[in-house]
């Protein structure tokens, strides 16, 4: 990873039981990383997050929501579309399709996915039993500019199972947005 810092802020809303220190510390080498307390779920948490970001961040920022923190991050992207440059949802629990045994997500947020204006990456652990397999299609189909990614060998806690893979993926997306699908490394063996 290049040592030259980029002057952009990245906000991590980590609602997982075990905070993703590897992700935070890894991104902090290149970005100014803020990690507000996620608080409880629900509109109060989203209001507090919005107030915190209004107070602390004056410019645009990339936004990452992890696990239960994805709902607040998604809500923030909808509230402040002019400020969120990229949205990354990691093992999100924001959308939990009915009839799949993975209920409990926000119907309102699910209906508003089409309003997300920034490039969005949604990352799933290949073996995540807490996220319905159908969820990937819902994000992909409803968010206008959305990529989905599966991390092999990871369950719900991707940061614990494949820390470097998650960091590389997230950093690549923060830097290149939707063009991250284009190979940027040379394949030459003996140039």
């Amino acid at each position: 990873m290049a040592s030259e810092p980029v002057r952009e802020t990245v906000v991590i809303v980590d609602g997982s039981e075990r905070r993703s220190a590897n992700l935070r510390d890894g991104l902090a080498q290149r970005w100014l990383v803020l990690e507000p307390e996620p608080g409880d779920s629900g509109s109060d948490a989203s209001d507090r997050l919005a107030a915190t970001l209004d107070a602390l961040v004056s410019e645009q920022y990339g936004l990452i929501g992890v696990s239960a923190g994805a709902s607040a991050a998604l809500d923030q992207a909808l509230r402040s579309p002019e400020r969120v440059t990229a949205l990354i949802l990691v093992a999100p629990l924001a959308v939990r399709p009915a009839g799949t045994g993975h209920t409990g997500g926000s119907t309102d947020l699910e209906h508003r996915l089409s309003e997300v204006q920034c490039p969005t990456l949604v990352v799933f652990g290949q073996e995540d039993a807490r996220v319905a397999p159908e969820a990937a299609s819902i994000y992909r189909n409803r968010i206008p500019n959305c990529n989905i990614a599966f991390v092999y060998g990871a369950g719900h806690d991707i940061a614990a199972d494949r820390p470097q893979a998650l960091l590389n993926l997230v950093a690549d997306y923060l830097e290149r947005r939707e063009t991250f699908i284009v190979q940027s490394r040379s394949g030459a063996i003996n140039p």
Partner: peptide, 12 residues
């Protein structure tokens, strides 16, 4: 998988 996706594997 019905939609296009990215794969972050160990070898692929």
């Amino acid at each position: 998988e019905p939609e296009p996706f990215s794969w972050e594997g160990r070898y692929y």
